[in-house]
Each structure stands twice: as C-alpha cells, then as structure tokens.
Write a protein that binds this DNA or RNA. Structure first.
Length: 507
RNA sequence: GGGCGUGUAGCUCAAUGGCAGAGCAGUGGCCUUUUAAGCCAUUGGUUAGAGGUUCGAGUCCUCUCACGCUCACCA
C-alpha cells in the first residue's frame, strides 16, 4: 500500500479521502468531452467574428490537467491543459452547485485532471474562457509535479518562472519532464516527424520496408561488442543485432531491388553524448547502383527530412547555421586529412611509420592499432570536429571496411563514404561487396586482425556467403543514425535529449 | 575504466567550520474578472549514503552510489 512520502502528498491524499467521503469519484470511468482546449477557443472566436447580436451561446465540455489556479474570493480561475493547448476556466460561486464549488475550492490541486462544462465567454481581461456551470474531477494527482509558472509577454513570448531542470530526474521521470516542459514534448513530436519523413521519402523512391531479426545466432555488419542473451527452450545463445546489414543484403539476392529497415541496434560499448546502448538506425540498400548513387539518395533524404521537420533545409545546430541543401561537399578521406595535418597517410604504408608520424604531429594514438585504425583515428581527431556543413568523406582504407568493394585500380582503398554534419558522424555507406570469394577472404582477414580481441572479431557468417554465391546484384547501401539526425534537426547536444528513455544506471 | 565537477525542502537555488535559509508550491485567513494575481500568517529537512577529524561538519578527510563534463573505448 502506498503511503505519502511528504507533507505535500499527505495533503493530496487527505483530499482524495475527503472526496471519497463526499461520494465523489476521484477516478471516474466516463468523460463527456465535446471540445479540446483549442477547439473550444476557436469555436467561440468563430461565432464572435460572425455575428455579435444573434450569436448562439457556445456550450462546451472540456477536459484537461489543471496547470494554474487562482482562487479569488468567491471566484476561481484555472487553466487546464490537454494535448492541444490550454483554456481558462472561470467559476463563479453562485454559478455552480455548492458541491462543485466546495470541491474545487478545497480539493483540487495543480496537476489534477478535471472536466468542466459551460458557456464560452471572454473575460474582462480579454481571455476566451469557459464560464463553468458543471465541474468534475477526472483523476486526482497524488504527487505534485514541479511548479512552473508562465507569463505571456507583450510581444507574445512565453516567459517561464521556475523549472524542472535536474537532468537525471528529468530522464528518470520522463513523464514529469514531458508534463511540465512543452519544449521536450516538441522534441519527440519532431522525432516522430523525422522518422515519418524518412519512411515517406524511401517509400516514394521505391524502397520496400522490411523487418529482420533482432535476436540473431551470429551478429555482424559492424565492429562492436554485442549483447548476449539465451533462449531457454532451444538451449541457444543469441545476440542482439549490432546492425541490419547482412540480413538486408540477403534480400537483394532474393530479388527485391531496394529495401530499408528502421529499427533498434544494440551495442555493448561505452555511453557518451552520442552513444546509447540501444539506438535507432536506418539502413537502406539499392540494387544496380553504387556509393555515388547512395550519396544522391542520402543528401536528398536528409534535406527532405529537414524540410519536413523544420520547414527549411537550412537549420541551426549548436549556434551554427547548417545548409543541408544538396549537393553536399565531397572530399576523399586522404585529402581531408592531408588538408588538416600535413600527414599524407599513403607516405606511411604501415602501422609503425604512420604511428610515428602521428606522434610527431602530436596526435594521440595507440601503438597497438592497425594501420586502418590509425587512419580512422586521424579522421576522428583532425577531420571530424571540423565538418560542420554536410560533407561526404570518401574512400576508406580496406582493412577497416570488410563489406565494401575496392576502388578500381587501388586495392588499398574501398568505395565507402561517411557523412558528417555538425561535427558528428551521421551515416556510413558502401558500394557493397558482392564477390563471394572476396567477401570470404575479408572475413578471414578480419578474423586474423582481431585474433587477440575475440569479442571484437566479426564472426564469419557462412549463410551470408552462401546467399552471395547465388549471385548478389551490384548495389549500394547506407546506414544513418536516426538519433543523431534527430539531434541535428532539433538542435539537441546529447543523444539522451532525443531518447524518451535513455539508458541510466539503476539507483 | 581515468581525470574534473555536482548532489541541501516537492521544484529552482542560498548558507567563512558556529542556530539549515529564500522564492515558487503547500496550509490557514481576506478578496465575485484573475492570469507569475495580491496581502497577512504559517508548515515542510536522514544536507545522496556510510565512516572519520573537530568542542562543533551542509562545509574538512576516506569510502560508496548516482548524475554531468572530459579523456579513453566505440573500425
């Protein structure tokens, strides 16, 4: 049985008990809403604009949460809020039953859900309000929400007093965060719009949306530690997927020309402002094209989503104005690095010499890294933070890209690009490798490279190779981090602000 | 995992090693057109947790927990 944790909850609990003694249902089953808050106001304004004289009274029943109340003698004002907005209730003691007035005067708190019936009118101060004739509780709030007051200034800005800003508590009690912080609600509406826009674009471009296994006997498609779980009846360990890649490409063997999936990936890695253990990924694959085709689709896709969410392809992120209008800048990885630190990595064709050159240039790196990993470190440290405007970085070292086709005439590089915006990696794409024998060699190469780091090795997927031996059309594929895209479009600096329930440790 | 920082009332925050406070919210009172309503009065604390130093600890020390920033890790 719940007991009040403090004085505020005790007061509310007492009110609940008093209501029960009065025979008032604190959590009734039925509501009689006829108008949302915004509909009620609009209905009145419409009549008001039409004809003052013959206007029929606008009768409404509205429902919502009490977000402000002000008892002034024998008059009670309150704002209630629903999903559409707020409307003011205006109660006069001699205009409602004694029971109703006693109820709202004595037992109603901020946070309670209520229902009010009455006639729309305009108060002396000019606010369209419900002149209440009947009043009921819909749900008593036993715990107090953080108190935030608002004032609408003369230039129509909302000024807020008070806050619920403790980051940890906001995430742990996201419901309270959403209830009192409208800008947080906006972020997740924008998130939904982003995902909807991605689907709309890809559906319109002829891609088929599919769903592939989250529980997998073999994980693959990326280099990351997986989460492991177990199926009891099958006596089988299963992995939560770290990417969709290998399952989606099998579908091109199965003669779909273009497929995509939006879903959750799980990576058993560190947590940071741009990493969460589970995150939402978009991957799309298209036959009869290559990574150049993927660049075209990607930049149009992202611009489309930006337009849908923000109304423009020019956005603001962390104080930067970012223009997502295609075409985006394209530069090879080699040139991008060479421009920024005067290391041309082709001059250092092995890990030892490249490591030495990086140390000489005062760039942190691990001496145990492979050559490809060192190149990636260069990208991450000297290039990535500078890529504010949308940029495709092209052509990556072969040994960190086991699923990409080699650049013709250059066996050390593969046709791969990553897209960067706002100093963040947002996506990764290849001209997909479709040579089954080369793919098998890559798997074996990866196994050798990661021989001493068993948990990072990409396991050899025999079934994927079998699929490829049936023949896979030439294709391009791309993965986009949806959370990071939402961060960009909503101007949030951490992934946790765009995840409803980010991962937190148990307290 | 390393470094730095934070944790005080429901919320937002104060408090030289010396009585633990304010605003909002709550409670009681006045007020029949308020809107951050106002005025008067007033309640509310395991100072994240455990231990230590001290005559005396929110404050200093040690450990633990959570969160933030940062580095590492994350091809």
């Amino acid at each position: 049985m719940w007991t009040p944790a403090n004085q505020l909850e005790r007061e509310r609990f007492d009110k609940l008990n008093r209501m029960q003694e009065m025979g008032i249902a604190a959590y009734p089953n039925r509501v009689q809403r006829t108008h949302t808050a915004v509909e009620a106001i609009r209905a009145y304004e419409a009549v008001e604009n039409e004809n003052h004289e013959a206007a029929a009274p606008v009768e409404v029943t509205v429902c919502g949460r009490v977000v402000r109340q002000n008892l002034k003698g024998k008059v009670w004002f309150a704002h209630i809020e629903d999903g559409t907005g707020r409307v003011q209730l205006f109660v006069r003691a001699d205009n409602v039953s004694e029971a109703a007035y006693t109820l709202l005067k004595g037992e109603i708190d901020l946070g309670d859900f209520v229902q009010a019936s009455g006639t729309m009118m305009r108060t002396r101060a000019g606010e369209v309000s419900v002149l209440v004739q009947d009043f009921a509780v819909l749900a008593k709030a036993l715990s107090p929400l953080p108190v935030i007051k608002e004032r609408v200034t003369e230039d129509n800005q909302v000024e807020r007093f008070g806050a619920f800003s403790d980051v940890e508590e906001r995430y742990r009690q996201r419901y309270a965060d959403l209830a009192v912080n409208p800008d947080v609600r906006k972020v997740f509406r924008d998130r939904a719009q982003t995902v909807a826009a991605l689907r709309r674009f890809l559906d319109g471009a002829g891609f088929l949306e599919v769903e592939t296994p989250i529980l997998q006997p073999i994980y693959g498609g990326a280099a990351a530690r997986p989460f492991v779980t177990h199926h009891n009846q099958l006596h089988q360990d299963l992995y939560l997927r770290i990417s969709f890649e290998l399952y989606l490409k099998r579908l091109l063997v199965g003669m779909y020309d273009a497929v995509y999936e939006i879903g959750r990936d799980f990576r058993n890695e560190g947590v940071s402002f741009k990493h969460n253990p589970e995150f939402t990924q978009l991957e799309f694959y298209q036959a009869y094209t290559d990574y150049f085709g993927m660049m075209d689709v990607t930049e149009r896709l992202v611009a489309y989503a930006a337009e849908a969410v923000t109304g423009s392809t020019t956005i603001t992120f962390e104080g930067h104005t970012i223009d997502l209008t295609p075409p985006w800048q394209r530069i090879t990885l080699r040139d991008a690095i060479r421009q920024r630190c005067e290391i041309d990595y082709v001059d250092y064709p092995d890990a030892e010499s490249l490591y030495a050159a990086m140390r000489a240039a005062d760039i942190e790196a691990s001496p145990k890294d492979t050559w490809g990993k060192l190149v990636d470190t260069l990208l991450g440290t000297v290039v990535e933070p500078t890529l504010i405007q949308p940029t495709f970085i092209l052509d990556y070292p072969r040994d960190i890209s086991p699923f990409a086709k080699a650049v013709p005439g250059d066996p050390t590089h593969v046709e791969r690009f990553e897209m960067f915006v706002g100093g963040m990696e947002m996506g990764n794409a290849f001209t997909e490798l479709n040579d089954p024998l080369d793919q098998q060699a890559r798997f074996e190469e990866m196994a050798r490279l990661y021989a001493d780091e068993s948990d990072e090795a990409t396991p050899l997927d025999e079934d994927y190779l079998r699929a490829m031996r049936y023949g896979m059309p030439p294709c391009g594929g791309c993965g986009i981090g949806v959370d990071r895209l939402v961060m960009l479009l909503t101007d949030r600096s951490t992934i946790r602000e765009v995840l409803l329930y980010p991962h937190l440790r148990e307290k």
